[in-house]
Amino acid sequence: MISRSLALHGGLIALLCVLQFVLPAYHHGNLARIMVLATYAGAYNIMFGYTGLLSLGHALFFAAGMYGMGLAMQHGGLSPAPAMAVGLLAGLAVSAVLGVLALRTAGVAFMIVTLMFAQAGYLAILYFGNWTRGDEGFVIQQAERALAGIDLSDPTNRYFAALVLFALGMGLTLRLVRSRFGRVLVAIRENEERTRMLGYDVFAHKLGAVILSGTLSAVAGAAYGLLFGYVGATFGAVQYSIFPLLWVLLGGAGTVIGPFLGTLFMFYLIDLSSGITSAYMLVAGVALVLLTLFAPQGLAGEIRARLWRWLP
């Protein structure tokens, strides 16, 4: 079972590695973006897919990482490596605080509380325009985007940096779902009361899931800002809370590979349909409706239900 899973996920990484050399420049750039966003979706999946906590405020974590990194470089004069660490710590701190407060609620109330927190974060970005440059955001200069001597603005380096991030995120999730901690998260998703009555501290486990998910989201946000050289308020807006939910739903909640499939699918769906018609969101919407009708468990979820029961 473990070797099959290794073959599948290792195979995907190997394939992505090979694609770097064969893809035309346009798709090459897209795929680098998709890998970073899929890492974000994977982080979202830890909370939503495995623990059963539906957050509508993940943009807060993504932006915390992005701004933690960006502001540390722009105003703190830090180089990319320590700036990435600042992004990670920002995500850690924000998710710990949000977790402690929001986990007092459940269900719809939890969705609303996370949404409100993210909205407050977005407004804070706009409010502190002196530092964040508000709506406009700011560019991280090409000269500054070098990590250990590697120029991250170079497409090939950027691709590989995104791939490393994606592989780390996926490896982390694979480890998580096999660990005792991860199995308790799934138990909480399946039956919270029963999990408590088996002697597990449900609150502590949920908090762990929020912090893990929030911190990994922040790392993805920081990497996105660094690799593509732009930090902006849009990434803290509500659509960046909805995107990971859609990607995970499409790809398959509670599967390791699903978030990547969902992100890839959605990215190209919008990309292709916007080439055909200006009503591309309509095309995307119709495709989403069809998928929810005919593949309600998402792409990887259907594969698991029909073909590969072992899929983690």
Partner: peptide
């Protein structure tokens, strides 16, 4: 009232 983890 039976309370198992139905999906596991």
């Amino acid at each position: 009232i039976t309370s198992v983890f139905p999906g596991l």
